[in-house]
Design a protein around this nucleic acid. Structure first.
Lengths: 256, 256
DNA sequence: CGCCCCGTTGATCCTGTTCAACGGTCGTGG
DNA sequence: CCACGACCGTTGAACAGGATCAACGGGGCG
């Protein structure tokens, strides 16, 4: 319940609040999230847990009873079919909630797995509902989080069905960078802590296709690989990436 | 509640409550939905609206303020990107809720369109929340509906990413039939009131591929076309369809 | 009747998968 | 210290599943 002082990792870009605000158009989403976390912490008895890459927050089939909020780090949601097919269906960052899929059935429907060091706040769903009676704003936050989750998944569906492989990868990078920017973190150089296999699974394509798509994006100067480690990617112009996703493979300006 | 003799060809399979319970494994989901509708109708001031194919319930960008429940008919949810890409991201049947995507932003994020004659119950989100104070069970229903929606979309993601075109179509038919069965309607002959184009869009494939997939499923005896009208489909064995989805294209028993 | 929309089927093309080989990095142990 | 193997990412070549292009039949309706 205590030990609040630690749980910070200055070396981990995900965990710390921004030191300098970026120069992108920055909505006050970071404040929204901070206020949300503050309110939850103040009104719901919660348990903080520091997690490391690979740690499981919950697993499909477990009894539901608790919800979770990402305070730091990031997490993947994996949905599995009875025949063994697995699919990463969501990536959750600071301020996102985990576990909604368990409410209806009383059992979690997916696995939630940490992709990096981070901190998870967990609390009983029942306790949350009780707290909502005293503090109705809390209910609004809950509904907002669920609504956001629904919209986000619909956007995934749209991207998966309507975009080419290259555009899907570009959209993925754009989404990632935007998620950082919205939280007040710098978005011009992101460090995916996912293997190509995980990216491919998330985007519904193979490792090779992901690799090729990244190479092509790099050739088009839409991204740049950091010197060391091809998991660190620079995005010179976020809007160019977005334009590529939308306008198709031909930005018309700097093509051939 | 009886009148068991009809229910053969109600001409409108979606609209009417079940007359005879089917012989499939039938959970009491029909009762769950009926009880839900009853409770909502008793506690929330709602507006009933009869709609016809093509009618719009709400559109992306409109101010959010109301939620909707399908009492009869069925509806598609269409998500659109700024560049014009459109994607059917959900199909909603009796008992399903519409409009959750508007809660977070205050504006609907998708279009909801009737695919057939039906009836929609609409009510103010604020009024619902007020009613929840008096009747906490209502809040449980709301959360359950949102949770279900999230799970459903994750399953769509899984199917889209991991299944071949034929399996996707089979899965779609299976989902449709199961949706009917769960509501106490007969599931062995379904009448899709969607064009091939709409099915294709929903499944992320072209009209031609849908057509071919249906032909192949028919050749495999997993489905059969009704004499007149290739939108009416018989499913001799629902479990065989499910087995095809999972076990891949080779059911091993009646192949070759 | 003519038109339009829908669904089917065939032929061809292309995107992304599959199969394969290779280089780099890291951790382990001789 | 370096050899080794496991893992990751990249790239090439061949393949295949769907997309695309095209033609045709049927039904509804002005």
């Amino acid at each position: 319940m205590l030990t609040a002082t630690e749980a910070r990792h200055p070396t981990r870009p995900m965990a710390t609040p921004p030191a300098a605000l970026p120069h992108f158009e920055v909505p006050n989403e970071a404040q929204r999230i901070a206020a949300m976390l503050e309110l939850v912490a103040a009104t719901v008895p919660l348990q903080r847990r520091v997690v490391h890459a690979g740690d499981t927050i919950y697993q499909a089939g477990e009894d539901f009873g608790r919800l979770h909020i990402v305070n730091a780090g990031f997490f993947k949601i994996v949905n599995s079919a009875s025949d063994g097919r697995e699919q990463v269906v969501g990536l959750q960052f600071r301020g996102d909630w985990l576990g909604f899929d368990g409410i209806a059935t009383g059992r979690y429907g997916c696995d939630a797995i940490a992709m990096d060091t981070g901190e998870i706040w967990s609390f009983s769903y029942e306790a949350l509902l009780r707290a909502c009676l005293a503090q109705p704003r809390l209910l609004g936050l809950l509904h907002e989080a669920m609504s956001r989750e629904i919209s986000r998944e619909r956007d995934s569906l749209l991207s998966l069905c309507t975009l080419s492989a290259d555009a899907r990868v570009a959209d993925f990078l754009h989404y990632w960078a935007e998620s950082l920017a919205r939280r007040g973190l710098r978005a011009d150089q992101i460090s995916l802590r996912m293997s190509r296999a995980e990216i491919g699974n998330y985007l519904g394509m193979t490792i090779e296709s992901v690799s090729r798509a990244l190479s092509r994006l790099s050739a088009k100067r839409l991204i740049r690989f950091a010197e060391k480690g091809r998991r660190d990617i620079e995005i010179p112009e976020l809007s160019a990436l977005a334009a590529f996703v939308h306008g198709g493979p031909a930005p018309a300006s700097l093509l051939q």
